[in-house]
Simulated assay, not measured.
Amino acid sequence: FFHFHRTALHLACASGHPDVVALLVERKCQLNFFDGDYRTALMKAVQCQNERCVTILLEHGADPNLVDIAGNTALHYATVGSNTSIAEKLLLHHANIEARNKDEFTPFLLAVSKNKQQMVEFLIQKEANVHAVDKSQRTALMLAVHHDSADLVRVLLQQGIDISSEDANGWTAEEYSIFSGLKVSRQLIAEHREEKLNNYLQNKNPGKTFQHELLLVVLT
């Protein structure tokens, strides 16, 4: 692949002219040329949410797994745009759901960091790795807490993310919530921890409620 400024195909995708895209593709233009930021025409079509252009490019063999200057794929762009329909098309054409950009963000982690709940739920449905961590070893739960996204915290806790995981600085998601003064997120995590402990104790010793109460005192 070559590094060029924008081609006619880039411009047609960016301005939303699927008929022009179809004409250029039929005339065997190069689908995977990069512009100055190493973005392909497919990335531009996704970024501008021109789904018809995206469809034409994919059906003619555009590569969804090429990366731009920041390591983002077309699926990363779909994530930022919160466009699940385009994301679905990319995945059907073998886009890598676990692709990582230079910050080690998968599309799933990027969706969490941008507070794109619909996209997060879509990627969970598509079996994205909810336990992925970024280059600072932050989990999706830490990112959701950091960005004060209580609704996403609820969604992620339901996925069984380990609340005891530590980032590169040794911080847990609960510590993020404490130091940032995020009472709702802290409460959700504390309730989740208590529920897990309660379930564990009930399975191990159904009748020993005193041990349960004692452990809750210790943990809180």
Rank of each mutant, 00 (worst) to 15 (best):
S165C: 12
L157E: 06
N169C: 10
T139Q: 13
H147R: 09
I163K: 10
D162I: 01
A144V: 04
I163G: 06
Q158D: 14
A144W: 03
D167M: 10
V145S: 01
T139D: 05
M142F: 02
L157F: 13
D167R: 08
V155L: 04
L156C: 07
V155W: 05
A173C: 12
I161E: 03
S149R: 08
V145W: 09
D162K: 14
E166R: 10
A168W: 14
S165T: 15
T139Y: 02
V153W: 00
D148N: 14
M142P: 03
I163Y: 07
W171L: 14
Q158T: 11
Q159W: 08
G160A: 13
A140K: 09
R154L: 08
L141E: 03
W171Q: 11
V155A: 09
T172C: 04
A173M: 12
E166Q: 15
L157G: 01
I161R: 01
D167Y: 08
H146Q: 14
S164G: 03
L156M: 09
Q159H: 11
D148A: 13
I163H: 05
D167V: 03
I163T: 15
T139H: 01
A140E: 12
V155S: 05
L141M: 12
Q159L: 06
A168N: 13
S164F: 09
M142T: 07
H146V: 05
G160F: 12
S164D: 13
D151R: 08
L143R: 12
A168G: 07
D162T: 05
D151A: 13
T139E: 03
D151N: 09
D148E: 10
